[in-house]
Each structure stands twice: as structure tokens, then as C-alpha cells.
């Protein structure tokens, strides 16, 4: 399934510096195929969130000059989504295609009620009111929060708030999901529910996380990012079981690999 003929996401020679002058990303290149689920791992400060923010143009890095002999001036844009360059003219379309789940649900839940919040994206996309209403109830059902339309965010648990955020993203029916730490701060049951929702999702996904078990379970392929550079890119099991690679980038071989448990298979019977 990986590396399908038309990549949904193409990142080529992407470099980015913070306004303070600090380098965040250096010459990052990778492709994501249709329906492919890619993990993004690396220590804190590796540039995972910065990279994700480039996928829908919230940050705009530059295309690094390719080393070697000077070629004809390259297009300045390093990120393409479905063949479209990520430039302001394409932002409306690109932000429909790319859905973004932020790490802190409170950053993403800015409307007074759950229903308003899930409706925010579809309304901005210009769908008629009836279509918006049906999308709201459909996506809330998909995340297991049927009938939560009139609840207020401050009365929800953390896990519920994260799922409302996910519903708000899914309501736009994106083809590519950028997920920043989707399982952080979740209790085991909420985490399991989230994994199940993401597994059922047809969109391609780029999942940045420290939760390597989640990466192992969700992603067929993983990218190791450290100090703003891609350090490794390959099948998840191969990379995550490479102890030297994991160690040298501040990571650990997941316990399920250490103890020989198959990913996705739960040895303890689930009631």
C-alpha cells in the first residue's frame, strides 16, 4: 500500500529557521502515499511539530539549495499536497485536504458548545446548513460522542475533549491527517478508543508521537527525526527494533518488541 503512484504529500529539501535564527529543520524530504499511515518519532525538540505545521502552510519553510552543481532555480516551495504547492493561493483547498489535530484540545476547542465546534470547519468550507448538521452528528457518532452537540467543552473530560477535536477535524473529511501527540495525557481506555477511531479512518496519516506502542500499532512506516534532520525512514518494526538507532536518538525499543509480543495483538484477553 505504501508509495502508491500519486503521493498525497511530497516534502522535498525542506528547511526552516525560527524567527530567532535557530535552525529547526534541515533538508527534510519524504513522500506519503494515499491511505498510508506514517509515524514521526524523535526526542523533544527534534522538530516534529514544526514539520507538521508545514503540511498545511501554518509555517512556510524554504526549499534548501540542493548540494552539488548549481541547477536552474528550483521552485521555492518544498511541500506539495496532492500535487499542489503549499502557497497562500492554495490554502483553502489544502486546509480542506489536510486535517490537523493539535496536541492541546483546549487550543482547538474554541467554540462555546461541542456542536458549534464540530460545525466550524464544514461551515468555513461553505457547506449548506443541513449538510453541516448531518456531518456534525455523523462525526460525533464516529468518535463515540453521539448527542454531545449541546455540551460545553469545560464540562468534558480530557479524553472527550480530544475526541471532540478529532470530530472537528474529521467533519471536514480530510484526505491527510496530521496528528500531533494524539495519545498524550490520555488514560488507557481513552487511548484505546482513539487508536480504534484512527484505525477505522481511511485518510492518510502522519502521526507524531512519543507513544511508540501506538506508532507500532498504527503505522506501517516510521520516520526518525532528530535535530531537524531525518535520521531514518523505513518499516516500523525494523526501525523500532534497532536498539542502536533508538538509543542514539533518545528513544527506546518498545516493550512489546522487547518481549516478543506482536503489535496489535493483545495477549491479555479483553472483556
Amino acid at each position: 500500500m505504501s508509495h502508491a503512484s500519486v503521493p498525497i504529500l511530497k516534502v522535498e529539501h525542506l528547511s526552516y529557521r525560527y524567527p530567532t535564527g535557530q535552525t529547526a529543520l534541515t533538508d527534510v524530504s519524504f513522500l506519503v502515499g494515499m491511505h498510508e499511515v506514517v509515524g514521526l518519532v524523535g526526542p523533544n525538540g527534534a522538530g516534529k511539530t514544526t514539520l507538521l505545521l508545514h503540511l498545511n502552510g501554518l509555517l512556510t519553510g524554504v526549499r534548501a539549495a540542493t548540494p552539488g552543481p548549481a541547477t536552474s532555480p528550483e521552485p521555492a516551495h518544498a511541500v506539495e499536497v496532492l500535487g499542489m504547492q503549499v502557497v497562500p493561493a492554495n490554502f483553502p483547498e489544502i486546509r480542506r485536504i489536510v486535517g490537523f489535530l493539535f496536541q492541546d484540545p483546549d487550543d482547538q476547542l474554541f467554540c462555546p458548545t461541542v456542536g458549534d465546534d464540530v460545525a466550524f470547519g464544514p461551515l468555513n468550507l461553505g457547506f449548506p446548513r443541513d449538510e453541516v448538521r448531518s456531518r456534525v452528528s455523523r462525526t460525533l457518532e464516529a468518535v463515540g460522542l453521539t448527542g454531545f452537540e449541546n455540551r460545553v467543552p469545560q464540562q468534558l473530560s480530557f479524553g472527550e475533549r480530544r475526541r471532540v477535536c478529532l470530530a472537528g477535524v474529521l467533519a471536514c473529511e480530510p484526505d491527510l491527517l496530521a496528528l500531533d501527540e494524539p495519545s498524550s495525557n490520555l488514560d488507557p481506555r481513552s487511548r484505546r478508543r482513539l487508536i480504534d477511531i484512527l484505525k477505522a479512518c481511511q485518510a492518510a496519516q502522519v502521526v507524531a508521537s512519543h507513544d511508540l506502542e501506538l506508532i507500532l500499532e498504527l503505522c506501517g512506516r516510521v520516520i526518525v527525526l532528530d535535530q531537524g534532520r531525518i535520521q531514518a525512514d523505513g518499516p516500523t518494526r525494523d526501525l523500532l527494533s534497532n536498539e542502536r538507532l533508538m538509543r542514539s536518538h533518545g528513544l527506546e525499543v518498545p516493550l512489546s518488541i522487547q518481549y516478543g509480543l506482536e503489535a496489535g495483538v493483545r495477549p491479555v484477553s479483553d472483556p
Binding site: L53, N56, L58, F91, P92, R95, R96, V98, G99, F100, F102, D104, D106, D107, Q108, F110, G115, D116, A119, F120, G121, L123, N124, L125, R129, V132, R133, V136, G168, V169, C172
Partner: peptide, 23 residues
């Protein structure tokens, strides 16, 4: 800082500076 992130989250869901409501 949070208002910056909220703004990014709004842009990510297609906001272009105009508020629409469902009713």
C-alpha cells in the same frame, strides 16, 4: 502563546477571518 495556537487551529479548519454559525 495560546492565542497563537488557537489561531493556527482556526486556520487549519479553513477559517478565513469570517465567523459563520449554524443557526
Amino acid at each position: 502563546n495560546r492565542s497563537e495556537r488557537v489561531h493556527q487551529a482556526m486556520l487549519s479548519r479553513g477559517w478565513q477571518g469570517e465567523f459563520r454559525t449554524i443557526d
